[in-house]
Simulated assay, not measured.
Amino acid sequence: MVSLKLERSFFARRSGPFLLRRPDTEERLRILAEASRFDLAGSCHRGPDGRGRRRGPGNRWIYPVTLPNGRRITLFKTLVSNVCVSDCAYCPLRADQDPQRVSLSPKEIVAIFMDYLRRGWVNGIFISSGIVGDPDTTMEILIQVGRILRFKEGYRGYLHLKIIPGASQAAIEETVQLADAVSINIETAGLRNFKRLSQRKDYFRDIIAPLKYIAHLRERLKDRGQRLSQTTQFVVGAAGETDQEILAYLEGLYRRLSLNRVYFSAYQPGAGRPDLPGESLATKTDLLTREHRLYQVDFLVRKYGFSVAEIPLNEKGFLPLDRDPKEAWAQANPGFFPVNINRASREELLRVPGLGPTLVSRIIRRRRETRLKSLKGLCHQTWLLKKAAPYVTF
Rank of each mutant, 00 (worst) to 15 (best):
Q100V: 00
G317F: 05
D275T: 09
F126Q: 07
S307C: 08
V235F: 10
E187M: 05
L253K: 10
L287I: 00
L178I: 10
T137L: 08
G157Q: 02
F151H: 12
R200C: 09
C91D: 00
V262R: 03
R200P: 02
A35P: 06
F299W: 12
A248M: 15
L228F: 02
A167K: 14
R156L: 04
N69L: 06
L257E: 08
G305D: 04
D223Y: 13
Q331N: 14
R367Q: 10
S81K: 06
K77T: 07
I112W: 03
G317S: 15
D286V: 05
V392S: 03
T138R: 09
G278E: 10
D98L: 09
T393Q: 13
A328R: 05
R290V: 04
Y254C: 12
V65L: 11
L355S: 03
I163H: 11
R8W: 03
L4R: 03
L191A: 12
L79R: 13
L161K: 02
A33L: 08
P106K: 06
A330G: 07
L191Q: 13
R368I: 02
C44Q: 15
L6G: 12
G356T: 05
R147H: 08
R8D: 10
H160Y: 11
Q268P: 08
L19R: 14
P334I: 07
E173D: 14
G377D: 04
F299A: 11
R371E: 15
E153N: 00
L247M: 15
A332D: 11
A167H: 00
S103D: 04
K373T: 10
N185A: 07
S280N: 13
V301A: 05
L93C: 09
G354A: 09
E187W: 05
S103M: 01
L67I: 09
Y295N: 14
F113E: 11
L321D: 00
G124R: 15
N185T: 10
T283K: 13
G278R: 01
W329P: 03
L211D: 03
E108D: 08
D275K: 01
L294Q: 07
A189S: 06
L276H: 01
E34R: 15
